[in-house]
Amino acid sequence: MYRALKTKPWISLLAFAAPALVFYVIFLLIPTLGGVYYSFTDWNGLFRSYHFVGFSNYVEAFTEDSRFIYSLFYTLKYVLAIVILQNVIGLGLAVLVESRMRTKALFRTLFFMPNMFSVYISTLMWTFIFSTAFPQLAEKTLLHFLDQPWLGSSSMAFVSILLVSVWQGAGYLMVIYIAALQGVPRDLQEAATIDGATPFRKFLHITLPMIMPAITICAFLTLNGSFKIFEVVYALTGGGPGYSTEVIAFNIYQEGFARDMRYGYATAKAMILFLIILVITVTQVAVLKKKEVEA
């Protein structure tokens, strides 16, 4: 007992943090530092030896690898679309579910359900829908608008990828927005109603400013998550047709595992992805946090 009281704070701190630190250092810190280092080498999964090549991987990615540049812009396009769609739909679902108290629990359960599936599994389900169910429904029922080259043309494949992503992820944001909506004080709403505010104006001037913190969080979650999109593309289009739906993560995966196993070069591309995510998410959080204070 005496000893327990006398233990120096930093010793007990290290003792408590040690298990976490061990795992963190071995499986996250070392691979991260290793990744930074290897991105400056010509490390190849096939050979043991490698050489330091300076910035040449980074230079190559930006100047010679048009496929990578394409995937970069394609991912940005996807991120922009999904951040807006996901948040608008997520918030819309939350408002919709919240507006009927009696059925609230039921619809929340149903709309959130897709989130429980592995992204890979949901994508396979949708592959069945796009490849078999939709063409057949277009032919045999009145749903003629379903007759689309869902995975065959690059523009429709983009729509399909968005569709699967929204289906899978909108419920997650809905749940967060529902929690935020419940935090909006009721008396504030009622006061506005007495003052004659329309429901739309109330939403715009009371609800929206009050749930600004949730919007910051959800924007962060969708930004951070959508930059890393992999499974949907991997299972749905395989990057095709051609490489028109290739996102960064898929490009990196292909570079490392499918083409010449250039681990060093693939890691350099992943570091570029990391820097982009870092800059964009930090900016987003800073900008939206400022809005929270003003509101």
Binding site: I26, F27, L28, I30, P31, T32, G34, G35, Y38, W43, G45, N224, F227, K228, I248, A249, I252, Y253, G256, Y263, A266, T267, A270, M271, L273, F274, I277, L278, T281
Partner: peptide
């Protein structure tokens, strides 16, 4: 927390 899995993927395989 922001590090994408892909940035550590290849050296993680090695570890």
């Amino acid at each position: 927390m922001l590090i994408p899995f892909y940035s550590i993927m290849f050296s993680l395989i090695q570890v």
